[in-house]
Every structure is written in structure tokens, then in C-alpha cells.
Design a protein around this nucleic acid. Structure first.
Lengths: 332, 332
DNA sequence: GCCGGATGTGGATACGTTTTCATGAATCTC
DNA sequence: GAGATTCATGAAAACGTATCCACATCCGGC
């Protein structure tokens, strides 16, 4: 008994079994072209009998493209990107498309490598949370693959379809809420790549007549360590601040942790509001007030966009929602 | 200007430019076989000049296998699987191997579909957190692909290499810790697929001379809703219990939430210990005592295993660690 | 009864790569 | 120096599919 020799059944075997040509089998199975009911029947029966599954390899080579979609996220450990990925998978799997995933760690170099890798695999549809500048994506576009950006747009590539959250409104809502509670010295813990939100933050403060204190705008990298360092540094350096807006769940986590370590009590000593609603926000003490973002939806919509490449699609902006829990109080 | 006509540069182009045969180019670029320094130089120069990237499509078809590895997890939203995935990606990316991911939702049917899909793509290396029984995997093994199971072994496939946590010791450590605090009515919130842990739980109790109360062993599905229902039901039905061991972070989350809703105070009214250390365990009030599992390591090791298919590898068991925080106290 | 079009069918080709095989040259062995 | 061995090399054959093209058949219209 040959243990590993099992040559896979090919379209040729089916053609032989059905006593037709390979071309006919291909047509029947892929639904294209015409075939008489009788032959169709024969082919289908033969295929079923032989348990035939067309080889994606042959098809891909012939079509000069790999089916499926590539997905590039900064960090799969971050629940936000976890949910985004989940959305992508939900859509892709229901469409029968495989998904190739890669993590960039928010490093443009890794991003470039991954793009190259996708190009090599002839993946022609990509969803990415971009971290490099527009230049990175040159080779991708030149090779003709269709890209959808998620979460963030990328400067210099404004005409690429994207699915983003309404940062402007989200930030404004948060700032107005805090200001309404009497806060004036509000810090923004942000991550690199959130230029949009930082701008919105400045605008929102300005609109309320609060002068922007640049020292209160802190930027961290997309790691837990960096986020914690930023939060702790901020708290120690500026104990006079009364409220913090965290630009993502990693930053919120860091803020809660740092506040805990320094014995800042929330919300008595400091008010805290975080972008992105995550399950643990409810378990916190006190439960965290958040600006929720539809992460899963974002992934799903991005997948839809990249799959229906036919119609030209503009960028989609998804709404945020303020969910008030217990981490914000009046200015002390 | 042709916008989309950019025929990709093939090995043939390189051969022409370097004035050698395609075979030589292939040999030089793939490092196999011999070539004179002079020709090697020529080929390399030509390849660089033309910015040539070999097509994975052609190679895959020729080799009759797709590079890269398939990854099947129940739920990418669960941080445990997120970290596991991260580990797989870390190893795979450093080896230059693409990763195709799919989520099963712990549904054997979806699992079977995904296996079929991987088969169709001729992916020959798979890492899976299995949910179906051994039968599901018949086609996969028959097709000769190499599989590594992660987190859970599957009954009937004991000779398949796997990377699992030391459930036995982990559970025993937790139970002994709780028993040492005086607890006797200890519940186990488990998930389907954790038969191993349930058995260990029974054994650990028996070893301590505690009679097993079957009503205190609850099984949930791998969703937040199911986990919450199980936890809340348990608390309401058996208010006499004094300690709970949660078999995973989703179940722990549910337990914390349910305890909060029912105004059970932790650890005064009830002690809580959870499998899997997650970032929010530290943010909780009180911070959660956990049995940590090296999720990322698990993924990395699994990837290593599936990539070095050469040596026959047995299953790897990774240790757990009890991290005492503040969610367990003496029996009330 | 002939023609034009529609329809069903299969042979042949191309996709880009790796690998086998044969050939010729060069080096080694005694 | 003749035979044997190694080495570098390119032509050609696969891998499994989709599609182009040519051919055959059939049908309705005149």
C-alpha cells in the first residue's frame, strides 16, 4: 500500500470517467459556458464519484492571480484588531475566500516586507491597517492589486477606498463630555498613526475656548510597554491634569494601570475615557466610560469593499458612540 | 501608457537578460545546484536590474504544494487565541512563510469546511485548535498534510504532534490552592473541549478527599453569551459555593461579570481563579488570581513543529503558573 | 434544400516555475 | 595521454487549470 503516493484526482480523471473532454468538465464545474443537460449530469456524477476538488494551484496559475485576500494588522493581540480581523474573516469565509494574515507591529519596514510577500503570492486583494507612508504602497498599486485601508487613511493616498471611524466626532464627543463635567486640563494619550485624532483633539479644545497645552498631548508606540511608559510619565510629570482621553484600548489599559500604581483614584482624582469598547471595560473598577468603535463592522465592510471590486468605492466612515459608565466625574 | 498591462517579469526575462537558460536562473536564485561564479554574478545582476520576484504560483504548481501554513482557531476575538496566533505569526514570518487563518467558532462543521478549503489550496502544513472529533481529520491525513494540534489534543489522534498546556498540574495547583484556603464547594466553569481539565478537576478533588459535586461542574459553549449564562446560572442555582475555577478567560470574564451583577463580593463572598493570564486580570477589582498559560509560546512552538517536519515529533506539554493576586480569600 | 446562426464539444495552448536528463567541457587518475 | 569522473549548462517536460479556437451538429427561415 502506497502511503503517500495518493496522486490527487485531477480534472483529467474526471473527464475520462465522464467520457468527455477536460474543457467540458472545466466549463460545467465552473459554471461558465454552455453544456447540454446530459453531459452536465455525467460530469457532475463523475466528479462526485471521484470526490474531485479542483486544485487552486492550477486555477491560480492559469488565472494569474491568487484568490483570497491579504490582511495586514499592526498587532493581533490588540482586541481591537482582533475584532477587526474577526469581521474580515466573517465576510471572507462566507464568500469562500481564504485570508492570509500578517502583523506589521506598526513597523513600516515589516509592512513593506509583507507587501512584497503578498505580491509574490499574487494575492490581488488586500485589506491593511497601514503604518508606512504612501510610498510603501507604490509597488502594490503598480502591480495592480486592489487595496482597502482600514482604521486609518494614509496621507498621499486619499483616493484609495478606506473604512475608518469618525474620529472627529468621536473625539469631539469625548472632549465635550469631559468639558461639560468641568474639566479643562485634559490630556490625550495617543499612538503614532493617530494624527487625525490629535488634530480633532486640538480642534475640539479650541472650539470650547480651552487653550491647547501641548505637553498634555502624548504619543506612544503600539506596544504595552510604550503605552504604560507614556501614561506613567504623563501622570508623574503633570499631576495637575484632571482628565485623560486614551486613544485606544492599549492606552486605556496603560492609563488604568498607571493610575492604580500611583494611587490616583478614578474618577475622584482623575477622569478617564477611552477609545474602543472592550469587554474588560465593564469589569474595571470603576467601569470605564468609552467611545466605542465598531471594529468588527469595520473589518466586515472592508472585506465587502475589497471583494466587490467592480464598482468604484469611496471611503466609508463609521460612527462612534459614547458609552457612559463610571470613570468620569466632575472636576475635583 | 498602459495602466494595467504590466506583465510581470518572469524567469524567462531574467534568463534572456543574463544570456543564460531559465534552468540556470532557477538554480542560482533558489540556491540549489551548482553554477559558476561568473554566471551566478550575471544572473543576480540581471534579476536585480529587472526587479524580479519569482512567482509563488508557478513554484507552487510545480512543487504540488502551497508554501505557508494554515491556522485554525475557534475565535480570534478571544485574547488567548489572539496570543496563540501572534506566536504562530512570529515564527512563520521569521521563516518567510505566509499564514492562512480561519476561525471555526468551535463548530465541527465549519472546521470540516475549512479543512476542505485548505486542502483545495494545497496547503500542506496546518496548525489547529481542533473542535471536531478525530474523524474530521481523516481527509487531511489521507491527503498527506502535516498537522499540529494546539491547546487541545483530539481523542483518537493521539499520535499527532500537539502542543498543549499541562492541564493536570494547572488544575491541581488551582484546586490545592483553593482547598488550602479552606474551600470545599468549588465549582468548575468549563467549556466544551476541556474534558481533560474536567477530569483533572475531579482527580484533584478526589485526591484531597473532597467528594465531587457534579452540579458544580458546568459546561458552556465558546461564546460570551453562553459563558455568561453558565456563570449566572451557576451562581443563582448554587449560592452555597465558595469558590470558582474558570477554565478560560472568557469564562473568567463571565464569572466576574455575573458576580458583579449579583452583588457577590470577591473574594469575601466568593473566591475566583481563572485559567489564562490576560492584561485585564490586573486591572480588575480585585485583581484576578490566575493560572497563566504561555499562549504565545504555544503558537510559536506549534509553528516550529509544523515547519520542521523532518524529525518525528511527539507532543509538547507547556507548564502553567499560578499567579496569586487578590481574588481568592479564606472560606467565609 | 441550402444557408446562417446558435449551440455543444474537445484539442491545444499558456500560465511560471522546478527538475530531470543529456551534452559538452574540464579536471582528475593511473 | 586515455579513460573516468566531476561540473556547468540549457532544452524540455511536467504540474492542473481555464480559455481560445475549430469543428460538428442542429434548427429555423427563406
Amino acid at each position: 500500500m502506497k502511503v503517500s503516493g495518493q496522486r490527487r484526482t485531477t480534472i483529467k480523471d474526471v473527464a475520462e470517467a465522464a467520457e468527455v473532454g477536460v474543457a467540458t468538465v472545466s466549463r460545467v464545474l465552473s459554471g461558465t459556458g454552455s453544456a447540454s443537460p446530459a453531459t452536465r449530469e455525467k460530469v457532475l456524477a463523475a466528479a462526485a464519484r471521484l470526490d474531485y476538488r479542483p486544485s487552486a494551484l492550477g486555477r491560480n496559475l492559469r488565472r494569474q492571480r491568487t484568490g483570497g485576500i491579504g490582511l495586514l494588522v499592526p498587532d493581533i493581540t490588540d482586541t481591537f484588531y482582533g475584532r477587526l480581523t474577526d469581521g474580515v474573516l466573517a465576510c471572507a469565509q462566507s464568500a469562500g475566500e481564504p485570508v492570509m494574515i500578517g502583523t506589521t507591529g506598526d513597523d513600516p519596514e515589516r509592512e513593506a516586507e509583507l507587501i512584497g510577500s503578498l505580491l509574490e503570492e499574487s494575492v490581488e486583494r488586500v485589506i491593511a491597517v497601514p503604518c508606512g507612508d504612501g510610498e510603501m504602497w507604490g509597488p502594490a498599486f503598480r502591480a495592480g492589486l486592489s487595496v482597502v485601508f482600514a482604521e486609518r487613511p494614509v496621507q498621499g493616498r486619499e483616493n484609495v477606498p478606506s473604512v475608518v471611524t469618525d474620529d472627529r466626532t468621536g473625539v469631539r464627543t469625548a472632549v465635550e463630555y469631559l468639558a461639560g463635567l468641568g474639566h479643562r486640563r485634559i490630556a490625550f494619550l495617543s499612538r503614532h498613526g493617530q494624527a487625525q485624532r490629535v488634530r480633532a483633539f486640538r480642534e475640539a479644545l479650541a472650539a470650547l475656548g480651552v487653550t491647547v497645552d501641548e505637553e498634555l498631548i502624548v504619543r506612544a508606540h503600539a506596544t504595552r510597554d510604550s503605552a504604560y511608559a507614556a501614561a506613567a510619565g504623563l501622570f508623574q510629570h503633570r499631576p495637575d491634569l484632571t482628565a485623560v482621553l486614551a486613544g485606544g484600548n492599549l492606552l486605556g489599559e496603560a492609563a488604568v494601570l498607571a493610575a492604580k500604581e500611583l494611587d490616583f483614584r478614578v474618577p475622584r482624582d482623575i477622569s478617564l475615557i477611552m477609545f474602543d469598547d472592550v469587554p474588560w471595560a465593564e469589569l474595571c473598577h470603576p467601569p470605564l466610560t468609552v467611545i466605542s468603535q465598531p471594529a468588527q463592522d469595520m473589518g466586515y465592510r472592508a472585506a465587502e469593499l475589497v471583494l466587490r471590486e467592480g464598482r468604484r468605492s469611496r471611503t466609508v466612515t463609521l460612527p462612534t458612540e459614547l458609552i457612559v459608565r463610571g470613570s468620569c466625574g466632575p472636576r475635583r
